[in-house]
């Protein structure tokens, strides 16, 4: 009796180990996609699987840095990633990405020229644009009667206890830098010191430093003014018509999330097939409509509703973007930003 239990347990153990390691089995028919959470229309993955007979292992990350370290530390082989601008720059620098063969991605022609060859990937050898947007101020028109066109609004004592800031070190420090007229890619200790002091001065006025909760808080009118990304703003304004969004005149962050293939990928062909699929106008339309962010795909743009095409929040006029900057990789200086942010929050 005991012996038989022993065998059962042994078999069970082998079965468990077996299932754990089957993930490592080499399989040309699977593709490992690593994307931001809630950043793709769910049916798109199924459609890709059906059309090409390739199984997609889909997983998600919350921040660029988290994704970067996971890819960097190895131990997992992702085939398609969706990092933002400055991380792409860093990954190219560190030789972590494969050059794309644009012959395998014919739909690349659908991408609007103005989103190609940007600073972080000057010859567009490594990445294909997926989504883009801005960072700005969302406010409740009923409560905020002043004209909002500057980051100063977030330092206005009138709105004490009504201000929502982002709990993201890079973005919040960038806002303070921009307000002072500096570059948001500053690595000048004096400039950063001043930006820090301003954020410490602002802290008593801030209601909370939030992440995704900002959507619920603004829609539910728990706060009057906050910092959000344009895509979220489109969604929030759809839910509560008292809300309005503005990109401050001092300039803001203009960001891009692009698709890339890491150098550890074993399925480059399939990965390019996937990127090409994502650039197909009808597929990109599904993603754009689901996520709410702005598409860099000009064919998809034509398919959008008139209302959306003229939406200043999602597709702002060129003049409102003239002071905007794209994040650069800060390298080792990231630690300094992290320290400053800790200093602000530990006050």
């Amino acid at each position: 009796m005991k012996r038989s239990i022993k065998y059962v347990l042994l078999i069970l153990l082998i079965a468990i180990i077996g299932t754990v390691f089957t993930g490592c089995k080499k399989d040309t028919d699977t593709l490992n996609v690593y994307n931001w959470g809630d950043y793709i229309a769910p049916e798109v993955i199924e459609e890709f699987e059906k059309e090409y007979g390739i199984k997609v292992n889909y997983s998600t990350f919350d921040t660029n840095e988290d994704m970067y370290v996971k890819v960097k530390s190895g131990g997992n082989s992702y085939d398609v990633l969706f990092p933002s601008d400055y991380i792409i720059e860093k990954m190219i620098k560190e030789d972590m990405l494969l050059k794309l063969d644009m012959n395998n991605i014919p739909n690349y022609k659908n991408i609007d020229e103005k989103f190609k060859n940007l600073d972080f990937d000057p010859d567009n050898e490594y990445s294909v644009p997926y989504m883009w947007g801005t960072l700005g101020i969302i406010y409740n028109k009923n409560a905020v009667t002043d004209k909002i066109d500057s980051w100063d609004a977030l330092w206005n004592e009138k709105y004490s206890g009504q201000i929502l800031m982002l709990n993201s070190q890079r973005d919040s420090i960038a806002i303070s830098l921009k307000r002072l007229g500096y570059s948001m890619n500053s690595t000048d200790k004096d400039e950063l010191e001043k930006a820090k002091e301003e954020l410490i001065k602002q802290k008593p006025l801030v209601y909370a430093y939030v992440g995704d909760e900002v959507k619920d808080l603004m829609i539910g009118e728990e706060a009057d003014i906050g910092v959000v990304w344009s895509g979220d703003a489109v969604y929030m304004m759809g839910e509560n018509e008292n809300l309005d969004y503005v990109v401050p005149k001092e300039g803001s962050n203009l960001w891009f999330d692009n698709m890339v293939i890491p150098s550890t990928s074993k399925h480059k062909k399939e990965a390019e097939l996937f990127i090409n699929f994502m650039c197909r106008p009808d597929i990109a339309l599904k993603n754009t409509e689901y996520i709410g962010y702005s598409t860099p795909n000009k064919e998809t743009f034509k398919l959008l509703s008139e209302e959306m095409k003229n939406n200043d929040v999602a597709y702002p006029k060129a003049e409102s973007l003239k002071n905007c900057e794209i994040f650069n990789d800060l390298g080792e200086f990231t630690k300094e930003y992290s320290r400053i942010w800790t200093e602000i929050l530990a006050q």
Binding site: D62, E65, D66, Y68, R170, T334, S338, T342
Partner: peptide, 16 residues
């Protein structure tokens, strides 16, 4: 910022 948040910040935002 509590110690747990500090650890989270190092892993998720700073990548250190």
């Amino acid at each position: 910022m509590l110690i747990g948040n500090l650890i989270e910040q190092q892993f998720l935002w700073t990548g250190d």
